[in-house]
């Protein structure tokens, strides 16, 4: 059992724009293994939501099944959560989102949850461009069922017992890019500096935002020979870009070398200022993003950072032409056509 940082409550604790301290964004004590990458991701969610001044109760947490999918218990205690069934969180998120598009949706899934049993639903929620943050806490194995290889395990990666994974891996970043995701990022649970701004950008993005977070499983997949261990990940991370999230109404102050930086405006008025690590990787071009991903793979590196973004594509709510008033707020008088109308419908059937 590990503990997220115990919060010493002090009057001088920093407060956000809603006058809330970080503790308002915390959850229950984690029951995951000490050192599990998932806990660091939970801490980053807390930080990102706090920094974004989100009202905790206006966030909804959804997850599938797995150690990763349990983690919504460990953050945002004032938000409703739905720990659904294995691999099916996307559908629950879709239903919840169409019922009330005004909440912020944070989905937490695992590599087993998304790349194996839930591959179908993952693909379809990407296609629908559902407005949500979709976190894959990727440890290359099934933590909760004791460490079997998952579909994101790299070919040749060794299990604890020394067996090499013989199968090609599924890279959800590549899949998402291919099928039209509008925000694709990768990060590492051990890199909070990168992860928190990415999460803030992802939450502010109107549409589907995938962050594939390498999140080592210390118990089953952190040994030598595993390509999802802390050591391996640190050694092979290649930072694609460094982003700075700029909330609405704030000025961009960061200065980067011209040609190496760009500014991206999001729908809610916020913007991203982006410092490129690879000058020829343009994250607004799907082709360029795909090439950057392929290059990094060829070089045996793990490309992280904001890989692709399209802030213009309409989200599911827009595509479906739903009304602004959330569906769950409509009252009977707005919903029920009444008996007179039914009488005229009857007439068509006579």
């Amino acid at each position: 059992m590990s503990y997220l940082k115990p919060n010493f409550r002090h009057p001088q604790l920093p407060k956000n724009g809603l006058d809330l301290t970080r503790s308002s964004y915390e959850g229950l004590i984690s029951t995951l293994c000490a050192g599990c990458g998932h806990d660091s991701i939970s801490a980053a969610v807390i930080q990102a939501c706090w920094e974004l001044d989100l009202e905790p109760h206006r966030i909804a947490k959804v997850s599938g099944i797995g150690c990763s999918s349990k983690s919504p218990t460990y953050f945002l205690n004032k938000s409703h959560g739905f720990n659904s069934v294995h691999g099916r969180m996307p559908s629950v998120a879709t239903g919840a989102n169409v019922a009330n598009h005004e909440l912020t949706y944070i989905g937490v899934s695992g590599d087993g949850d998304s790349a194996s049993i839930g591959m179908g639903q993952f693909a379809h929620v990407v296609r629908r461009n559902l407005n949500m943050l979709y976190l894959v806490e990727n440890n290359g194995c099934y933590g909760l069922t004791k460490g079997q290889d998952s579909a994101t395990a790299d070919e040749g990666s060794k299990s604890r017992t020394g067996n090499e994974n013989p199968f090609e891996n599924i890279d959800l970043v590549g899949v998402a890019l291919e099928i039209g995701a509008t925000f694709v990022a990768r990060s590492f649970s051990g890199d909070k500096e990168q992860l928190v701004p990415l999460m803030k950008a992802a939450i502010s993005h109107r549409g589907f935002a995938l962050i594939d977070v390498i999140s080592p499983c210390v118990t089953f997949n952190n040994h030598h020979g595993s390509t999802k261990s802390y050591d391996y990940t640190r050694e092979h991370v290649q930072t694609g870009s460094i982003i700075d999230f700029v909330p609405p109404r704030e000025e961009i102050t960061a200065q980067y070398d011209a040609g190496e930086s760009m500014q991206l405006d999001l729908h809610d008025g916020s913007s991203l200022s982006l410092q490129k690590a690879q000058p020829n990787h343009d994250p607004t071009s799907r082709r360029s993003a795909t090439e950057a991903l392929l290059d990094s793979r060829e070089n045996n590196q793990i490309l992280t950072g904001l890989i692709y973004i399209d802030a213009q594509e309409p989200d599911f709510h827009e595509v479906m032409q739903l009304n602004d008033a959330p569906l769950n707020s409509l009252q009977q008088d707005q919903l029920c056509p009444g008996n007179e109308k039914l009488r005229s419908i009857n007439n068509v059937f006579r």
């Binding site: 559908s91 879709t94 239903g95 169409v98 019922a99 009330n100 639903q121």
Partner: peptide, 18 residues
Amino acid sequence: EDELAAMGMVIGASWNGA
């Protein structure tokens, strides 16, 4: 995409009050 998803969507929406 299939009936699993259809039921998941129904449950998600109902959970959220629609």
